[in-house]
Write a protein that binds this DNA or RNA. Structure first.
Length: 807
RNA sequence: GCCGAGGUGGCGAAACUGGCAGACGCACUAGCCUUAGGAGCUAGCGCCGCAAGGCAUGCGGGUUCAAAUCCCGCCCUCGGCACCA
């Protein structure tokens, strides 16, 4: 093989770039196709071989679509705000802008050396003020529609470093930097009311084509549960404790109410609580435990009574005590539950503290029912109602709507759906993010920055650390912070928190459509032309947050007439990550990251692309194997050698032509299901046959170069031109296969005896059953197995299999 | 803990609606060849066995003429869990 990948790959990359053959055309009359990969965070380590897998996968699809006659948009950009750059800036004092520029330059150079068919004219960068102008603009629209609001939320706080920490920076409950135990600190934060879109985000999943894991991921994350809100009046007070329940059928056994330690009612009732000191201490202790720990079943339940407080059960009219317990979460439902013998934790808590219990549901199981009634076991399932007045004898599901209706008439309950999904905490006390364009005036409250003043640019600061008070470094920029109120003109202050990294990535797919537009986020006509994204591929780790956030923003933009579609992504797939050779994660700290530059240098971009696609199923995590690259390299070498041998174009070859049909079919279909590994396997089989053959028909070879082109764009382009062509192979039409030529005339029939394979024979397709059974009985060793036995039954599958069942 | 994905040779894997387990590739072995190269060619390659044959798809049951594939129970690995991106 004398294929000089260095020379040839560079040559074509230059030609493709000059002729802009991968440019997406906004005005084309061809059908459009929008293929999207998740834009990367340009980390300081540069591109690694794991990035390349998804980009190559969708590059193959984008290239195939172009050959199938589509006008393809396959863009790229940078999600460049974020913690690592900021932390690096804190350490070195170098401005994040400079670090980002350096990192994106490296990434871009590396990506270009791999021959991806991105339209580089549409590159976007979330940290570019001309980009984040629109991120801020979207925030203002959300604010105007009442979907952005301030609320007190707990942040992780390191009391020694005096800074707020991301969850990632908290290792085992301690600060990553200094090891000090992390505390929770209440802070006013901007929130986005994604829960208002919960039902639509849930329902509209029916209209899109996502891999099942992504759909269930989203559904579970949104987590709707239908139930009722029930009011429990506090005895001797105006207050009512509102409880959310999905099990209203158990209301008659409710014997106490449990509040989350954060529940505001506790403070409201302070005056009537006789054991306040104990209560306060318990609540304080719980606040520093994570939700996961609090709700863990392995953890013993704990709680404390609010002495002096009673509420009335609206169904029974009985008075009930009120407790506080850590397993009740403030942000789920109403932060309060009514407790009974039909919930394991309620049951456990009651047993532990001798709170009275009652049953109202018995299982349809004669042995179990008495144990449940005697409170020996906790029964959480559905069953038959008892001790429930007029609802006795009904099943749980029958009773639920009837009880809600009955309580509703009394003004004590109403149907309600609640969600696991919580509103989105949108503030970060950090420098390297989009400034939140809001101004606070003591007289007028929060006021939005005028849209004419966008972008509100990040000012230069000297230090990038958050301040001692936990505010972002912007807080020390008094010139920037102190402004006049846009309403009254009085003195006011800017919001100094910035947006989370998720902001910029929640709408970038819209900006690619019209990346240089200075007057709007993107031109409506262009958006209508390109949206929705036809195929979006990304990591499974983004299934819940990024995917949901961006769907939410798009839906909101749809509602205000900006986005033309209510669902951003028509199809969503996922890739598996590339692991290091040992099977562990690739990471800088482990020192096992493979840099694609070395690989491209030694075997070339095409071989790397082929290997990445061949290494295993696209959606599965695969360990990197240096030696596997040799196989890809060798395969391409063989392709090259065939072209040099002189066998191409020397005449006809029926078996090669027939194999080509099979190969085209396999590759065409496998690309669609992202079975790139088996597509390449088919290309290898075809190559091996051509290598052995004395004659490879010209037409077959041309078609082969076409279906190889998406995987190995450089070599196929070079070989295409060696055949005398002057236009790009990537502008050729994707070959069709001839279905009539696929079916082989001869079929191999498998002979089984009692289900075990004992032989086989060849016969013509569609041959008759009786003759085949006779042939099978005599074939090879089969007769031995049948000798002296009785054939009880013969299973016959035409053109495939004969199974003799013997005794 | 909850949710999701997965478990097949020495390794990565393949196997369409249940129908020849291991395609394709890596590694390895033997031989050949050579402008000694991250070369190439030919053959072999699940395990046990000289063979006949037997055993094999995480483990234990089941359904079926036939199970990697369907059903029940269990074990293990990986990903996510809301301020990493």
């Amino acid at each position: 093989m004398n294929y000089n990948h260095k020379l040839i790959e560079k040559k074509w990359q230059k030609k493709w770039e000059e002729s802009k053959i991968y440019r997406a055309d906004d005005t084309s009359s061809k059908p459009k196709y929008y293929a999207l990969v998740e834009f990367p965070y340009p980390s300081g380590e540069g591109l690694h071989v794991g990035h390349i897998r998804p980009y190559t996968g969708l590059d193959v699809i984008a290239r195939k679509r172009r050959m199938q006659g589509f006008n393809v948009l396959y863009p790229f950009g940078w999600d460049a705000f974020g913690l690592p750059t900021e932390n690096y800036a804190i350490k070195t004092g170098i401005h994040p802008k400079i670090i980002t520029k350096k990192n994106t330059d490296t990434f871009r150079r590396q990506l270009k050396s791999l021959g991806f068919s991105f339209d580089w004219d549409r590159e976007v960068n979330t940290t570019d003020p001309t980009y984040y102008k629109w991120t801020q603009w979207i925030f203002l629209q959300l604010y105007k529609k009442g979907l952005a609001y301030k609320a007190k939320m707990a942040i992780n706080w390191c009391p020694k470093d005096k800074i707020g920490l991301a969850n990632e920076e908290v290792i085992g409950g301690a600060c990553e930097r200094c090891g000090t135990a992390v505390e929770k600190k209440e802070k006013e934060q901007w929130m986005l009311a994604i829960t208002q879109y919960a039902q639509r985000l849930y329902d509209d999943l029916d209209s899109v084509d996502y891999i099942p894991a992504a759909k269930t991921g989203q559904r579970n994350w949104i987590g709707p549960s239908a139930g009722a809100l029930v009011k429990f009046p506090v005895v001797g007070s105006e207050h009512c404790i509102e409880v959310f329940t999905t099990r209203i059928d158990t209301i008659f056994s409710g014997t106490y109410v449990v509040l989350a330690p954060e529940h505001p009612m506790i403070e409201d009732l302070k005056g009537s609580i006789t054991n306040w000191d104990e209560v306060e201490q318990y609540c304080a202790e719980v606040r520093n435990i994570s939700d996961i720990e609090r709700t863990s079943f392995e953890r013993p339940v704990s709680g404390i009574a609010l002495r002096g407080i009673h509420v009335t059960n609206p169904a029974t009219g009985e008075e009930m005590p009120v407790w506080v317990a850590d397993f009740v979460l403030a942000h789920y439902g109403t932060g309060a539950v009514f407790a009974d013998a039909h919930d394991a934790r309620d049951f456990e808590l009651a047993k532990k503290y001798n709170i009275p219990l009652k049953t109202s549901i018995v299982p349809d199981d004669k042995d179990l029912a008495p144990q449940v009634e005697n409170l020996e076991v906790c029964f959480e399932g559905e069953g038959i109602l008892i001790h429930s007045q007029r609802f006795d004898g009904m099943t749980s599901s029958e009773a639920r709507p009837k009880i809600i209706e009955w309580l509703k008439e009394k003004g004590s309950a109403e149907p309600h759906t609640t969600y696991k999904l919580r509103d989105w905490v949108f503030s970060r006390q950090r420098y390297w993010g989009e400034p939140i364009p809001m101004i606070h005036c003591d007289a007028c409250g929060w006021q939005p920055v005028s849209e004419d003043d966008l972008p509100l640019e990040l000012p230069e600061v000297e230090r990038y650390e958050p301040t001692d008070t936990g505010e972002s470094p912007l807080a020390s920029m008094t010139d920037w912070v102190n402004v006049s109120c846009p309403v009254c003109g009085g003195s006011a202050k800017r919001e100094t928190d910035t947006m989370p990294n998720w902001a910029g990535s929640s709408w970038y797919f819209l900006r690619y459509v019209d990346p240089h537009n200075a007057n709007s986020l993107a031109d409506k006509e262009k958006l209508t032309h390109w949206m929705p994204v036809d195929w979006y591929n990304g990591g499974m780790e983004h299934t819940t947050l990024h995917l949901l956030y961006s769907r939410f923003w798009n839906k909101f933009l749809y509602d205000i007439g900006v986005s033309p579609v209510s669902e951003a992504y028509q199809k969503r797939t996922s890739h598996g990550i590339v692991l290091a050779s040992g099977g562990e994660k690739m990471s800088k700290s482990r020192g096992n990251v493979v840099n694609p530059d070395t690989v491209v240098d030694i075997v070339g971009a095409d071989a790397l692309r082929i290997y990445e696609m061949f290494m295993g199923p696209f959606d599965q995590a695969i360990p990197w194997d240096e030696r596997g690259l040799n196989g890809a390299h060798r395969f391409l070498g063989k392709v090259w050698d065939i072209a040099q041998k002189g066998s191409v174009g020397r005449g006809e070859n029926e078996s090669i032509t027939r194999l080509l049909q099979k190969t085209i079919k396999k590759v065409t279909e496998d690309i669609e299901s992202m079975s790139f590994n088996t597509a390449i396997s088919a290309l290898m089989i075809f190559t091996n046959e051509c290598y052995k053959a004395d004659i490879v028909p010209q037409e077959a070879w041309n078609s082969f170069l076409h279906i190889l082109a998406p995987f190995a764009p450089h070599m196929s382009e070079e070989l295409w031109h060696t055949q005398g062509h002057t236009t790009s192979v990537h502008r050729e039409t994707w070959p069709q296969y001839d279905a009539a030529r696929l079916e082989e005339e001869l079929v191999s029939i498998v002979i089984q005896v009692n289900g075990k394979m004992r032989g086989s024979f060849e016969t013509s397709r569609g041959s008759t059953k009786d003759a085949n059974i006779e042939t099978a009985k005599r074939a090879g060793h089969v007769s031995q197995y049948l000798e002296g036995k009785t054939i009880v039954r013969v299973v016959y599958v035409p053109d495939k299999l004969i199974n003799f069942v013997i005794k």
